[in-house]
Design a protein around this nucleic acid. Sequence first.
DNA 1: GATGGGGCGTTTTTT
DNA 2: ACGCCCCATC
Length: 744
Amino acid sequence: MTNKNFEKAEIFKRLNEPQREAVYHTEGPILVLAGAGTGKTGVLTTRLIRLLIEKIALPGEILSVTFTNKAANEMKERISNQIGDLSSGLKWLGTFHSVGAQILRFHPNKVSLENDFIILDTDDQVRLLKQIIKDENIDDKRWPAKQLLNVIDKWKNKGLYPEDVSTKDDDYFANGKGHLLYKIYQERLKYFNAVDFGDLILESIRLFENNPDILESYQKRFKYILVDEYQDTNVSQYKLLKLLTGQYQNICCVGDDDQSIYSWRGAEISNILRFEKDFPNAKTIRLEENYRSTGHILTAASKLIENNDSRLGKTLWTNSGEGEKITVKSNWDGEEEARQITSELEKLSLNNFNLDETAILVRASFQMREFEDRFIAVGLPYKVIGGPRFYERKEIRDVNAYLRLATQPNDSLALERIINTPKRGIGETSVKKIRDRSKENNLPLIESIKELIEEKSFKGKTAESLNKLVNLVFHWNQLIKEEDKVEIAEVIIEDSGYLEMLRNDKSLTAEGRVENVYELFRSLEPFESIKAYLEHISLVMEIDSNQHGKKVSLMTLHAAKGLEFDYVFLPGWEEGVFPNQRAIDEGGLEALEEERRLAYVGVTRAKKKASIYYSANRRMHNQWISSIPSRFVTELPEENIETDLSNYAGEKELFKEQEYIDFDQSDYETPGWERARFESKSKIIDNKTTENYIVKDSPFELNEKVTHKKFGKGKILSIDGKKLTISFGSNGTRKVMENFVEKI
DNA sequence: GATGGGGCGTTTTTT
DNA sequence: ACGCCCCATC
């Protein structure tokens, strides 16, 4: 095909001016700042397609990285829909981790790995770390393995090897022993011929830093580099990109600093903020025309995000008219909020509106329960997006461990996982004996077992079981060598006694587990071999969930990034819930800005209508908390919102209570807040529904001594529901809400 | 090796 | 309040 052909193509014609520029500017570094709904993925794929069609690069010469498998698959699909076979051979289109794995698979020996190294999942990592902590005689109660994993993860995200962790960075764990444990962990990984997710990036960096010739070959190979969601990259991913970019500098990063919501897992918003400094002569293109939302939604979201300081700044606009205003509604509590939203959804549903185009986006998953309860009560079809993943289920991991072991008997971590599952009478002492032998003689566990059996170190049932297990493993391995067909998986799992164990389990969950195992067998079908399956799932922790039917989507704001719906419901916009108090406590202003970006992501998911809700009271950890509207509510411009207080009863109560909070000390003096206060006062309120919720039994007693965050120690003079009158001595006598007070 | 009680944590989650 | 994890106990 020629240039003309490309220019005639529909995908090209559809581009607007800045999009076109982003597609055509192929030489030199370029940052495409793509606001929500501005056709980001379209630009990325069109750019790639153009490189191929105009034969600027061969498929194998384009490195194209995304963050999630979902994004990678979507891109692949879009491309192949457009150009079919031309797209085959795009073997470097994938997630950061799959690219890292691919690189390491070519040169395992250069980073002290062997062929067929295994990729650990989180569960394996924790088990390994637990062992290390115990071996080092550290109290694993005080210093849990999970926490160590977080610390190590953090270091890996920052591109730090054990030797790079300075004493200064190492006050997180076990009084400065963190980096030592990290070192041992890395040694153990090498010993198991294993890497974790972080290593896929980190070891790739090490490979390139230690082998300039190899690096150069990759720099030459990757004529063009495309990066999606650049705001989500962490330091080590950035380093890897920087290395690969080399002298050619043909890197195109697409992202949106306003949608950076993953700092807590290592994403560095500074990567995108610094782009122009990092890559000299970089071109920045802003995509600001939004094709998703209507005017009010877009303006409100834009104004909201303008409250952030750390941003590159862009102004979204749309041609699609004003549309509907964002509604802001208040409720008495979470339950009422769920009722309210559900009834709005029911109305839509009764008018034959497609529920697939509706979503409820929450800040934290505990908020989902009330909605699920309500949906079930009224029979509204819904689906939860995200949540516990298939491959993280225990039974699935167990089965995978058996399959790993069958393909690779030396996989000691897999063996340790299932050595006594189902119960075979191989206790902790036997396992320790085996493990010790392995450490002494530097052997895989299975070889140690063989040795120990020959030496008759085990007796009775233990010896018998171990012998049987070892023989089975080698038998399976033989089966797979002869004919690696996925059907063998079922044979293996039956042989092992695992399925029998589940079938004999009378508990409620066991039935589901058996089903899950069969689901796994089904999911093997598309694969050529068990080995291919295992390699796939070690990088892809998801299974395609086929959630059919028209349903409301229920998910967290994080899970909603990249999605869009006609109607978006945003409950729980209250201080403490959203912005999340813990986030602010731990991360201060930066965290608050991230929360605001989350709000921005939420609002911009809506195509036709966004509705925001807050409640006067919320039950958290089984305690009633009275709450005040989120500052984000007050940051929405008045002209783009419609405050609807008609529905509900608790408003009066809410604002009456607010008067007991010391307003001088609060941040809520924005115009929106004042407006809300004023409106609430002028409303006539039906008090009926509130009565059920009024607290009758106070946890406090008259004359009880308490402390208040601000006023210090005091004595309770009177109790009126949640309102306490307290004498604070020199600080005077004040009325305060009980949740601002603690017992001494 | 099963069972139950005590202790603990309870934001977001991908690979 | 609740669920999960770990350990002690039988």
